[in-house]
Amino acid sequence: MGKKQCAALLQYIPQVGEKIANLNKIRSLVSAAVVKARDGGSLLSLAVCPELSLTGPVHSLNIEMIHRLGEADDGETMCEMKKLAQMYHTHLVFGMIEKDQHLFYNTIYAVAPNGDIVGKTRKMHLTTVDERWAAPGKEIVTAELKGIGTAGLMVGYDAAYPEMAGVLAVKRVDFIIIPSCWYGEFGETMALHTKMMENKFPANTMTTWDAIARFSQAQTLIANFTGTSLGCMGGSALYTLDPIYGGESPIVASPDEEEALVVPLNNSPKDWWFDQQKLLLSRRIQFYKPLVKNM
């Protein structure tokens, strides 16, 4: 029987605009995660970085500087991240400023252990800061992570729009991965009376990310920055399917410490009272109204 698989959710304070410094920090955290996984008898199969992983949030930079930080899919950043995935033989999800001809996007990529790009999505729901420089994405994307499952990809503020998670549930994803740069602009800390639930939520649980996991019935992986002048709030996490009624509790990082949070990658229980199939059967599509009609 093979080793259990796990994921590392990388949480760190980025140096804004400093790609080399941030790349070195990512390398160090992945290396530490490999050791943690091995010491726990697990195999590191996935590492997830925050949104705009190698530049950090660019809210404080002018447009010219942001454009200079943009790269194509075959640029130096992609080359280095492919090397990292190959070195540790793990899937790697990261974000960068993508340059595509005259347009720029807030994009995340999924890289396989052999260095192949197996998934890519562009942030669809832009913040006012993003709108200064980025064009919106147009597709809701999944990625096949060999040996792990099907992952739905979202970027940061996309999480504030529940329709995306609903579409990913229909696509039957096993996981949803959300690299983030969250500083409290949506959602809030979970506040439920302890007598309402079977298991106690971690203190730093965030409502929106928890809801995505429960209402798509797909385990949800968050990697978030901490610190910066934005006041990023950490809380990188694995959100689980049914923590209120006795399922596994979320695993949540601190709000302010740099760390590689190592979490198990478990398959959903087959005999649980609720699952993704039952969720989809509850959809009453006969009552749906089309938003756009063919002319």
Rank of each mutant, 00 (worst) to 15 (best):
G231F: 06
G137Y: 03
P264L: 00
K25L: 07
G234S: 11
N62D: 15
L92C: 11
E131Q: 15
E198K: 12
Q276D: 03
K123N: 04
P179D: 01
D130T: 02
T207W: 01
Y12G: 06
R283W: 12
A151W: 06
L241E: 05
I26S: 08
T220V: 04
I178F: 08
I97V: 13
L281P: 03
A160Q: 11
P14D: 07
S254H: 06
N22C: 08
E76R: 13
P264E: 11
K138S: 13
R284G: 05
D116G: 07
A110R: 01
A33I: 03
Q101V: 13
F201S: 06
I212N: 06
K36H: 11
A33G: 04
V252S: 05
I148E: 04
G166N: 12
A32W: 05
K146P: 06
Q15H: 13
G41Y: 02
M233A: 13
K83P: 00
V118A: 07
K19A: 14
E198V: 10
P162S: 10
N204D: 13
A223W: 01
C6F: 02
C49V: 00
L44V: 01
P250W: 00
E76Q: 13
M78T: 11
A85W: 00
P269F: 01
I140A: 02
E80K: 13
F287P: 04
V252A: 09
Y105F: 15
V141M: 12
K99Q: 15
Y12L: 09
Y105H: 09
K4W: 02
D210W: 03
E248C: 04
N204S: 13
L192F: 10
L192P: 05
S60M: 05
D39L: 14
V252G: 09
G17T: 09
H125W: 12
L44I: 05
A33R: 03
L52D: 05
G166R: 14
D210C: 08
L52H: 10
Q86C: 11
N199K: 08
E259I: 11
E139L: 14
T107Q: 10
T90W: 00
Q15D: 11
G235H: 01
G235C: 12
F215V: 01
K195N: 11
K293H: 07
Q15I: 07
